[in-house]
Simulated scan of single mutants.
Amino acid sequence: MKNVLFMAIILVFQIGFCQAEKQELNTKNISDFVVAKKKATTETLALFYNLKKLSQTAFAIGQQNAFNSFFYNIKGKSDVKKTTGYDPAIIGLDFSDITDDKNTEKADNWYFQQEQKIISDAKKAYDQGMIVTFSWHFRDPYKGGDFYTDKLADKEKNRVKSILAAGENHEYYKRKLDRIAEVAKKMKGSDGKLIPIIFRPFHEFDGNWFWWGANYCSAEEYKELYTFTVDYLRDTKEITNFLYAFSPDNQFNTEAEYLQRYPGDSHVDILGMDNYGDFDNKGEEGSKTANSKLKILSDLAKERNKIAAMTETGYQITFTKNPIEGFFSKHIYNALTTNDVSISYVMFWENNEEAYFIPQPNMPDTADFIEFTKKQKSALLYSLPKIYQLPKE
């Protein structure tokens, strides 16, 4: 009995000690929580801090390729601004064309021209006070072909293993990271400062449509890849303006499933989720399912001093596919806000000439999207705080 009582006292002491040791984020200790640590630029630390604080009261609304991809190919303002009068709070970009084997870095090369456009968009977004995120649809490391497995003749090949330290494509992979680092160091705003970037490598890894998907590498191989990528960029290339996002698709229902391929807190700043499936004509039930998964992210982020985000979502409307009633103002909004969920941002995928994820004016769901952006917890650019400045405490 004495032993049981003694152990109980020790357990209570240990719990109390752990709670006392847990730090709360403030403007003085941010570098303790970000992957880049004390190497991170002031603006990158401010982005982390402000996103974390924003998630307590609102979420930022973003769109992939907002400045260069439009429904009906109507150029000019972003489609978000055409509809609401304001730009999105976040722009999504991609390193794919920048690292493509066919990018010669010559002025007459199409891929290099895309690279210049991407850099220009990042600068424009930063100068306006928008958040900048980059995904990476990394092409086949063997032949530089596609990133989708259904377009690869030998899709069962373990390409992830080939780019790890002992793999035949490891040096090739490092050269691609060198290009990312080179471009990242060129991305400076009109103030001359490095643009903070949320980098989201090897996303949707729990699906099987990308060559880094769950069927094509083990959990340990995936974690090794993610860890090496961060270490190489942060330590070898000395990238100081990145926050790193971990972003599975929606193929999980428990915390354990979400963390199955998680590389660890020391290598992740943002706990993300891409989710199209739960919103694909599944109504309120789908919204509740998505919310339960976002709850997992949100609780983990609170526990570990991370940021939670819906890193991709949407429902694509085409000339033959009609909008879902209340998609934005009910299904998406409720998924992001109910059940004590704290999400920092939501990213809708890009529009194109023949389809859209965010409507232009006079579409059947335009009013629904406008209502969504005017809700209490929604934030477009005009209501975003000065995201790259730390508040004075």
Rank of each mutant, 00 (worst) to 15 (best):
K375R: 14
I163C: 01
E325S: 04
N281H: 09
S78N: 13
N351T: 08
Q113C: 05
T313Q: 01
T229F: 15
T41E: 12
G326Q: 04
V230Q: 03
A8R: 10
N253H: 10
E354H: 09
G144W: 09
H267E: 13
S31E: 14
N253A: 09
K161L: 14
I180M: 15
K293C: 02
K102L: 14
T27Y: 03
K143H: 03
L25T: 02
F13S: 14
K302G: 14
Q56M: 00
K155T: 02
Y276E: 06
D265L: 15
N281P: 00
Y148D: 08
K188D: 07
E303R: 15
T229P: 09
D365W: 06
K124L: 14
E238W: 00
Y142K: 06
F246I: 09
T240C: 00
V160R: 01
I98L: 15
L384W: 12
K157N: 10
I163Y: 01
Y172T: 03
L177T: 05
H203R: 03
I239H: 09
E393R: 04
M347H: 06
T42I: 12
A367N: 11
S329N: 00
S383N: 14
E24M: 01
Y148S: 06
E204V: 03
L259F: 08
I197W: 11
K151C: 01
Q19Y: 13
E105Q: 13
C217P: 07
S342C: 02
L93H: 11
P361K: 08
T57K: 13
Q116I: 11
F252Y: 15
I119A: 11
L294M: 15
